[in-house]
């Protein structure tokens, strides 16, 4: 068993290294075509483009590791952002950090709802979250009366977080994103609960035999996914300075899933690392920033992201084939 996990670990490390190499080659090629790409400016743009995807990707990665998927992230992001925005609008005196509490806790409730439907009725998460994708968006329209929260209501302290911070002037949302990634790493790799998520994903049938309570852990994973979507929601308000009910977060889930799958998290559960996910997010962010600098139409972005998901799935499969076939059971009986 140890030998097998050793093999997988080696492969995964290679996966992270592989993404890093791809990132390097990609940046160099773009830099050759458009030298201005290789400047600190670009680094800043990339770093500002990724924080929302990064925090959500940590949530999605944990969901994938537990052998589920969460398609409702974009709607949860929009939902939490509009709720936080409405709090700022209707109670102008609340300090900026209240927005974080409101968004994260709202997101946690939405995520818990997903988790409850999935666990109580034993339904596939993909269909449940496809339903809540529409449901959450509908409810967010209802509570906001389909009205945008205009920039004048977003506290300037919150906007500032996307621009600078006391720490070397690195924008606050970037610090938050990497902080969340580090905490996720500590949680997954250095706590019993974290290891249990991997155990459930690797073999859901065997997990109870090993004393793991599958339902509470699954609920926790979905709640975290919602809470992190909520964090991304308040970061959206910070970065873009307003919240629109029909635009905010639409299609976000596909970007996040693309990043996580590139990062090596297996759709068959049980496999996924923080390092890989972080690199996957950075790679996607770099691609999306490189396109306008290369003057490539933004139309290509969706096609590229889609192709990247499919290619990552194929790589994932070949890794699985070369690795330990026995560890990852088929996803269907």
């Amino acid at each position: 068993m140890n030998r097998i996990t050793g093999v997988i670990g080696a492969l995964l490390r290679r996966r992270a290294a592989g993404i890093a190499v791809m990132l390097l080659i990609f940046s160099l090629v773009v830099g050759l075509i458009q030298p201005r790409f290789l400047t600190p400016d670009t680094l800043r743009i990339v770093m500002l483009a990724i924080p929302l995807i990064m925090v959500a990707a940590m949530g999605q990665m944990m969901v994938l590791v537990s052998r589920h998927v969460d398609l409702s992230m974009g709607s949860m992001l929009g939902f939490t952002a509009i709720v936080a925005g409405m709090v700022f609008r209707d109670f102008p005196d609340v300090p900026w950090w209240v927005g974080f509490i409101v968004a994260i806790s709202t997101g946690a409730v939405l995520g818990l709802f997903n988790g409850l439907v999935v666990t109580i009725f034993k339904l596939p998460s993909i269909i449940v979250t496809l339903g809540t994708l529409s449901l959450f968006r509908g409810v967010l329209f209802l509570i906001s009366d389909a009205r945008q929260v205009d920039p004048q209501f977003i506290p300037s302290a919150l906007i500032q977080m996307s621009q600078t911070s006391p720490v070397f002037g690195i924008p606050g949302i970037v610090l938050i994103a990497f902080g969340v990634a580090f905490l996720t790493y500590l949680f997954l790799d250095h706590t019993r609960l974290g290891r249990q998520i991997y155990a459930i994903g690797s073999n859901p049938a065997a997990a109870p035999l090993r004393g793991i309570r599958v339902v509470p852990v699954t609920l926790l994973v979905f709640t975290l996914s919602g809470a992190l979507s909520g964090l991304a929601g308040i970061m959206y308000a910070s970065r873009f300075g307003y919240v629109n009910p029909s635009i905010t977060g639409v299609g976000f889930e596909f970007t996040v899933i693309a990043a996580v799958v590139i990062g090596g998290a297996s759709i068959n559960g049980g496999v996924g690392t923080v390092l890989g996910t972080v690199l996957g997010v950075i790679l996607l962010g770099t691609v999306s920033v490189a396109l306008p600098i290369l003057a490539v139409s933004a139309f290509w972005q969706d096609a590229i992201f889609g192709a990247v998901i499919v290619i990552a799935l194929l790589i994932d499969r070949s890794v699985r084939e070369r690795g330990a076939r026995s560890v990852v059971a088929g996803h269907r009986p």
Partner: peptide, 15 residues
């Protein structure tokens, strides 16, 4: 789209 518009604007300043 806010995301794409922001990235395009940043690319303009950088390029």
């Amino acid at each position: 789209q806010p995301e794409k518009s922001t990235t395009e604007a940043e690319a303009l300043l950088s390029t």
